[in-house]
C-alpha cells in the first residue's frame, strides 16, 4: 500500500496536475457506468459550465497562495456577492450598459484587493485574519448596497453566460483564454516569476531585488478582480445576483488550487491543474447526486475524496525546487 502511494507520488511529482484529471476521469467513468452511458455528453457540458466558475476564482486564489506561506484570500465569497450586485445594478437590465457593469465589477475587485493588502501591509495583520475581516466589511457593504434584492441581468449578458459556441459553453472558452493568459503571466513575465520567487523565499527574493510589496499588492488585486469578474458572470448565469451566491467558493477555491497540484506552502503553481481540479470537484458532486446518496454521506465522501487526492498528489515536497 505504502509503496503504491509512493509510486503514485513519484508520478505526481513529475506531473502534479495529472492527478486531478485522472481523478475527474475516474469519477466521470463511474457515473457513466452507473447511468449505462445515458447523458454522458451532457454531463461533460454541464461540468465545463459550472467548473468554469471554480476555475476563474481559483486562478486568483492560486496567485495568492503561490505568493508564499500564509497568503490566502478569504474575502472571495463577499467580493463575489458585492461585485454581482454592483454589476447587475449598473447594467440595469440594459444591453448597452453591459461593459460598464463589467468594468464596475472589476473596479469593486480592485478596491477590495487594495483594501485587503492595506490591512496586511499597513496594519501588519496576517492575511488570513485581514481578508476574513475584510469579507465582513464587504458583505455588509453589499447588504447596504442592494438590500438583498435580486437584480436581473440584461438579456444579452444572460445569453452570453448561458450560451454555447460549437456545442461548448461560451463561459468555458472565455475561462480557457483567461487561464492561458494567467499561465503566460505567471511563467513568462517578470511579475509572475516574482510571485513564485517570493513564495519560495520572500527574504531571498527581496534581497535579489524583487519589489516584494508591489508584487504582493498586485497579486491581491488580481485575485479580488477575478472573484469580482466571477460574481458578475455568476449573476448573469443564474438570473440575478444574490447575497449568498459566493458562499461555496471559499473552500472550493482553496481546494481546487491544492488538488490542482499547486503547493499550499506557496512557490509552486499549476495552472492546468485548476481545470482538472474544478472538473473533479463538480463531477464528484454529480456522481454522488446520481448515486442518490443522502446529504450526510455526500459530505463525508466529498471530504474523504479530497483528502485522498491531496495525500497522493500532495506528498512530501522538496523544500527547494
Amino acid at each position: 500500500m505504502i509503496s503504491t502511494v509512493s509510486k503514485l507520488r513519484t508520478f505526481a511529482g513529475k506531473a502534479p496536475w495529472g492527478f486531478s484529471f485522472f481523478g475527474a476521469a475516474a469519477i466521470f467513468l463511474a457515473t457513466i457506468v452507473f447511468t449505462d452511458g445515458v447523458g454522458a455528453g451532457q454531463i461533460i457540458t454541464t461540468a465545463l459550465t459550472f467548473g468554469t466558475m471554480y476555475v476563474i476564482v481559483a486562478l486568483g486564489q492560486m496567485y495568492v497562495i503561490t505568493a508564499g506561506p500564509g497568503n490566502v484570500d478569504l474575502s472571495i465569497p463577499s467580493t463575489i456577492a458585492l461585485a454581482g450586485a454592483v454589476s447587475m445594478k449598473i447594467m440595469d437590465g440594459n444591453d448597452a450598459l453591459i461593459l460598464w457593469g463589467l468594468l464596475a465589477a472589476i473596479g469593486v475587485g480592485i478596491a477590495v484587493g487594495c483594501f485587503n493588502f492595506a490591512l496586511i501591509r499597513l496594519l501588519s495583520i496576517p492575511p488570513i485574519i485581514a481578508t476574513l475581516s475584510a469579507s465582513f466589511l464587504v458583505q455588509s457593504a453589499s447588504i447596504a448596497y442592494g438590500r438583498g434584492l435580486r437584480i436581473r441581468p440584461p438579456e444579452a449578458f444572460a445569453e452570453f453566460a448561458t450560451g454555447r459556441i460549437w456545442g461548448l459553453p461560451t463561459l468555458a472558452i472565455f475561462a480557457l483564454l483567461l487561464t492561458v493568459i494567467g499561465s503566460v503571466v505567471l511563467h513568462r513575465t517578470v511579475y509572475g516569476r516574482s510571485v513564485t520567487a517570493i513564495g519560495q523565499n520572500q527574504r531571498a527574493a527581496g534581497l535579489a531585488g524583487v519589489k516584494v510589496d508591489r508584487v504582493r499588492w498586485t497579486t491581491y488585486v488580481i485575485c479580488a478582480s477575478l472573484a469580482a469578474l466571477c460574481g458578475a458572470v455568476l449573476a448573469g448565469f443564474s438570473g440575478g445576483s444574490s447575497l449568498n451566491m459566493g458562499e461555496e467558493y471559499l473552500l472550493a477555491s482553496i481546494a481546487v488550487v491544492v488538488i490542482g497540484g499547486s503547493s499550499v506552502a506557496g512557490g509552486q503553481s499549476n495552472v492546468a491543474g485548476l481545470w482538472g481540479a474544478s472538473l473533479f470537484m463538480y463531477l464528484l458532486v454529480t456522481m454522488l447526486n446520481t448515486f442518490g446518496v443522502g446529504a450526510g454521506i455526500r459530505m463525508i465522501m466529498t471530504g474523504l475524496m479530497i483528502v485522498a487526492i491531496i495525500t497522493i498528489a500532495g506528498g512530501p515536497k522538496p523544500s527547494r525546487t
Binding site: 459550472f50 458562499e247 458532486v285
Partner: peptide, 16 residues
C-alpha cells in the same frame, strides 16, 4: 434554499 446552489445541483443530476 438558494437559487444558485439549486441550479447547480439540479443540473448535476438531470443528465441521468
Amino acid at each position: 434554499w438558494s437559487p444558485t446552489v439549486a441550479q447547480k445541483a439540479v443540473a448535476s443530476v438531470l443528465p441521468s
